[in-house]
Amino acid sequence: MATQPKAVQSRARKNLFVNTVDAISTLAGWCAAAMIVVAVGITCQMIFVRFVLNHSTIWQTEMVIYLVIAATLIGLPYVQKLRGHVNVDLVPLMLPPRLRFGLCVVTLSMSILIITVMLWYGYEFWHFAWDRNWKSDTVWGVRLWIPYLSLPVGLGLLALQLTADLVAVILRIDTPFGLET
């Protein structure tokens, strides 16, 4: 049982790499939270401009969409660090410690693999937009490499955090799946 946030902070991680990645992910989490707050502000500003001033609202909707996308992608490593990504750990719970350790190493490695593949193609997609100077087809006409940048950045940081989690499990700094032994 258990999937939601557990007391992760309490464990003393004593590895420089793991600590550094944790710190980077926390910073990313702050950025994500800040972007969500800014999105709230811009949406309220848009309603004010339209309803009270009766002016045009050209850029707000698009800006808010990109902010929420960026918040999601950049927030990924932080939520991974908090173990906030829901999982089903019925099977891990039933396994004896050695098998649980093995399964945890396998699932983390698979996760790192798939996120790295997506990071690669995400970078390529971003580079395409940069190279060909794509813009959004709106009056605002944002250069698309800017919002697309959140793809390689967010996926890259997530891969990094997953790697740190794997290292922590292998070095026994952290328990497999964050479960109590």
């Binding site: 999982n87 750990d89 996760s111 798939i114 996120i115």
Partner: peptide, 17 residues
């Protein structure tokens, strides 16, 4: 895949891929 304990979102990506 989901019962292996991998997070749901990443599990869906793995199966899709």
């Amino acid at each position: 895949v989901l019962f292996s304990g991998v997070s749901v979102a990443i599990g869906l990506l793995i199966v899709s891929a």
